[in-house]
């Protein structure tokens, strides 16, 4: 079993999230000059590291247990379940996910959360100090990423001994991989029972600081096939892009 951990957060990423509204290329310099802000970030980072209790569930399915329906258009509505297919664990719709898993032998489905404890601290902080609440929220977002990265790193190391490799990580809500996959992925993982991750009727995960992801397992190292701004639901109004920056660089 892989247990993702986080020991520290990526400060550059936090700065980037903080500057999201302004997108100033100068921000690093400005931030560096404000010691109080740096202290605030350190304090909030510490709170996140102390409060986050990562629960992670994953399953590795052979591709034969997955139906890839590339003809799906996200506008068509809800993802159907697998009832109409025989001996299938999950049906995934969309061209992007089909491209990701093309030529793979297996796929990894993963969900992880930082837990309800941190959620409660975030809620309390919004009452006592909005500024800390904002920085805390940003640190928590960075922590979810860090935990998912650690999962990926550890699984990758495990697979390497079998001469297998991971594709990049892809989540519902990106590209044409509709957010409505959230429910079947979480159900496949038994995530509400095994990790305490639930969905609201509007497909949002609770605790909010949670992530689901799919990765392919293949026998060769491959170029990252997905990613970039084309996949991103925020591309039309992204403040990084407007300043010629990229969030993943």
């Amino acid at each position: 079993m892989i247990n993702p951990e986080i020991t520290q957060l990526n400060r550059d990423e936090i700065y980037r999230y903080l500057g999201l509204q302004s997108g100033s290329p100068l921000m690093h310099e400005e931030m560096g000059n404000d010691l109080r802000l740096d202290e605030q970030i350190s304090r909030c980072e510490q709170t996140v590291l102390e409060t986050a209790r990562i629960r992670c569930v994953y399953r590795i399915l052979p591709l034969s247990a997955i139906v890839l329906d590339a003809g799906y258009s996200p506008a068509a509505g809800n993802v159907s379940d697998s009832r109409s297919y025989k001996s299938v664990s999950i049906v995934l719709h969309g061209k992007d996910i089909a491209r990701l898993l093309d030529g793979c032998s297996e796929a990894v489905f993963m969900a992880l959360t930082l837990g309800a404890e941190l959620e409660r601290v975030l809620m309390k902080q919004e009452v006592t100090d909005m500024s800390d609440a904002l920085v805390l929220d940003i640190c928590a977002s960075a922590a979810v990423e860090a935990a998912a990265d650690d999962f990926e790193r550890k699984l990758s190391a495990e697979l390497k001994s079998e001469d297998k490799y991971l594709t990049n990580r892809f989540s519902p809500g990106y590209g044409d991989f509709a957010l409505s996959h959230q429910r079947p992925v979480l159900e496949l993982l038994n995530a509400s029972r095994a990790a305490g991750i639930t969905l609201t009727p509007s497909q949002l995960m609770v605790p909010r600081k949670s992530v689901t992801a799919v990765m392919g397992i293949c026998s060769d190292v491959r170029e990252k096939v997905l990613g970039g701004c084309g996949m991103c639901p925020l591309k039309s109004r992204c403040s990084y892009r407007s300043h010629n920056l990229r969030c993943y660089e």
Binding site: G19, M27, E30, D34, L37, Q40
Partner: peptide, 17 residues
């Protein structure tokens, strides 16, 4: 100052607080 990106959102909120 926030508009001019001299300060950032947490600082704006600190001032508001």
């Amino acid at each position: 100052r926030y508009e001019k990106q001299f300060i950032f959102l947490p600082q704006l909120i600190n001032a508001a607080n």
